[in-house]
Each structure stands twice: as C-alpha cells, then as structure tokens.
Design a protein around this nucleic acid. Structure first.
Lengths: 225, 225
DNA sequence: TTTCAAATGGGGTGCTTACCCCATACGTAT
DNA sequence: ATACGTATGGGGTAAGCACCCCATTTGAAA
C-alpha cells in the first residue's frame, strides 16, 4: 500500500474496517477507473481495528477516512473524536450495518461527513464521494428517515411526551386533561404541537409511528370510556 | 387404580394427560376430601396419550373426562370427537396450556363442557366441576375473552372486514368509500356495525384490538391525507 | 437583563367520527 | 313465501379532533 507521488489536487484515503473482504472491495471500487466520479483517489492505508484507524489517520492525515464504526479495540464516536483531534481536515465517512438511531445521531453530532448503510449498493457511496470531498454532508436516505423521526421524538417536551403516551393508550383529550390536571385546551395544544413535530396528522398515523419506533409497550390495553 | 363399589349417584372420572405429574396432581386434588365441592368422585383410569384416552373412555364410559388436548398419538378435536362417538354421555373437560383461539373455538363446537387453562389455579377447576357435571358448560374467563373477540372477528361480513383493514391503515371514511366505490355513508355504516361487533368505540381501540389479534400485517405504512 | 422555550388556557372553525333514525334491493335459507 | 342477513344509501346529531388565533406566567439561557 505504498503511496507514490501525489499530484496537487489528488485526494488521499484511509480505509478502516475489521473485515478484510470489505476493505479490499472498497479499495478496489475506489481504484477502478471510470467507476468513481472523483479522479485521483489514493488509498494510503488500511486499518482493521480502532487503534490502527486512529494511528493511520494520525500518520497520513488523509482527506478521507472510510470508517466502519463497529470495530474491535475502539469504536464509534470514540474513533471519530480521536480522528478529529489528530487530523481535523480529514472527512470521515461512516458506513455501518447497525441502524441504531442513537448511534447515528451521535455520529452526525461528532461531525461525520457521510453516513452509508452496508445494505446500500456501493454505488451510493461512490456517487456521493465527490460532494462529500467538496464539503457537503450526505446521509443515506435509509438513515435520514430514522434520524428524522428520532430527532423529532427527542424534541418533544415532557408534557408532549406524556400526552403522546396517553393518546396512544386510547385516552381522549378530556381524559388526559383530567389525568394531568390541566384544561382540555392545553392537552389539545400539546397534542397539536406534538403532531407537528412528528409530522403526522391523525391518531392513526401517530399510533403507526409509535409502533414503528417501539413506543408501544404492547401492554397496550386500551381503556374504553 | 382399581374401581371399587360404585354407589348410585357417584361420578366416575378418567384423567388424560401426557405428563404424569399433572395426572397425579389432578387425581390427588379430586380425591382429597374437603377440597372438591362434589362428593363421590372415582378416578377409574389414567391415560398418557390420545389412544389410551379414547380406549379408556370406550371401556369405562366415565361421567367425566379430564383431557389435555396437546397429547401424543392423537390430539385435540380428534380425541374429543372419538370420545363423543364412544361415550356420548361423558362430559369432557379440557385443560390446556395453548391459548390459540382457533383450537379453543373448535373444542367448544365439538361439545367440550369445560375449558380451563393450566395457568389457572386448580381451584378454578375444582370449583366449577359440580356445575359441569350438572350439565352446565364453563369456560375460564381467560379463554372466554379470547373467544369473544375471536368470534366477533369471525362474525364480520366481507365488507366490514375490508373496512376494518382500511381503517387501521389510516384511511378516512371518504377515502375508503372512494376506494371501494360506495358512498361514505355506507362505509360509515359498515364501520359502526363492525365496531359494535367488536365492542370498541373508537379508532384507537380498534387499532389496539387489531394489534392484539395480529390483524396488522406490519406492512402498515399509514398514508397521510 | 432580555430573550426564549415551555406550559398554561380562552375563542373559534372545519372536518371526521360514532351512532341514531329511515328505506331499498338482493340473495339464501326455512 | 316469508323471513333473515348483507349491502346499499339518505337525514341528522353530538362529540371529538386538528389546528388556527390570541394571551399569561415561569424559569433558564444568552
């Protein structure tokens, strides 16, 4: 993996993944002429665990780091932060199999420039690399959907969250108002702003969302009247 | 297990379960004086599989058969029917661990006189035996709830079922009407009679029920607007 | 200190739901 | 042949929902 003469304007890359097959397939995809919309990509190093990844970035200070967050010895946000400390100019692009909303959200906050799923075709990554190297941030649609509802849920105020729970439990506004000792009007208000945040327009959609996000304990038991 | 002199008015019993521990505990519970509200119960035979059960009933023609439907060699409705053929006067009482609505429903239709859950305390069975021997039919509350909504679901007309599906998919009456080419009024009618049958009073309860009964394909995808 | 989010609530509107009344038509059983 | 269930609709109503306007208080952050 020796680096040869680097012409100005060329971009350097470090690949980090604990599976050799993935490292090689990424390397090959980046090097294959005509496949990548950005020319002059030079893969300087591979890393097969978190320590190696940080070390490689520290040494090579590449323009781009392709990183699998699920790696031995060091993982996820920790790697990302170390990398920013040692080579602030490196664009970190994460591709991962995990789709946990919490993890993804953390990565974004930590300044990751790209988020791709291993379930996506590799072309997705290849296509978007130019934009990312150019300064943009790109999140795979598969992830952005998860992130949207997740951050929406996170943005709910305590009262709104409380209201949400009782709504999906089948309570009416009046019942909720009674339960939390406020006017029905206030509950209505919470409900409306909550639905705005979540981007839904009816109880049914609300419940569908709650289901999708696992908010329903499935101890459910809707009380009638 | 020899039968001794039977006084007129005494009741004879056959116990069928593939687990010896359950057979013995039932036998013991029935024989323990003071625990059973019906006196003079005589356990004539035990059976540990379906064939033995049928054979024992054929031979002894007992007043009561305590039967676990989940048994080797022959099971469920098959045993029950065989038994009715060979000894129509035998009251069959089923106690089971499975709670599948379909099975339970079949048993009732096959003329089972009692349905108890193994999750229920044995006293439940002991308490209700007199009524059953007297000609009544008794179903454990745990089961009757399942059966009620199940038979309610079965009693839905095609149109009502269709309406139900679209309602839990988040469609409004107008949308549904449009989709099946009838007036919104008709959909409203289906909806109302459907909810009456199911004993619910709002969309939320409806969805909770649909969830509980596994009617939601979980392809859900609620369309908005 | 001033600004801002969160929470509280009143007024009002348009829509949908849940459910009542009624009737007609078409089958399938009895 | 009469009765019953299914499906189709119309009229109407009370309640609830979704969402718009407005205002006040409180507490935390800038």
């Amino acid at each position: 993996m020796g680096a040869h003469s680097l012409i100005h304007g060329d971009k350097t890359v470090v690949i980090a993944d604990d599976h050799a097959i993935i490292r090689n397939s990424l390397d090959e995809a980046l090097s294959r002429p005509g496949r990548v919309a950005v020319k002059g990509l030079h893969v300087l190093a591979h890393a097969s665990n978190g320590f190696e990844a940080v070390a490689a970035v520290k040494q090579h200070k590449p323009d781009l780091l392709l990183l699998d967050v699920a790696m031995p010895l060091a993982s996820g946000a920790q790697i990302v932060n170390d990398i920013r400390r040692w080579s602030a100019d490196t664009h970190t692009v994460v591709f991962t199999g995990v789709e946990t909303a919490g993890l993804l959200l953390g990565l974004i906050e930590d300044g990751v420039r790209g988020l791709f799923s291993k379930a996506d075709p590799i072309e997705e990554l290849l296509d978007k690399l130019p934009l990312i190297l150019d300064g943009s941030t790109y999140v795979s649609p598969r992830f952005s959907k998860i992130l949207e509802t997740q951050s929406a849920l996170a943005s709910l105020t305590p009262r709104e969250r409380q209201t949400l729970n009782m709504v999906v439990a089948g309570k009416s506004n009046r019942e909720i108002a009674q339960a939390i000792n406020v006017s029905a009007k206030t509950v209505d208000k919470h409900r409306t702003s909550m639905m705005n945040k979540l981007g839904v327009h009816s109880v049914v959609e609300l419940i569908a969302l709650a289901l999708r996000e696992g908010l329903l304990d499935d101890g459910h038991s809707v009380s009638h009247k």
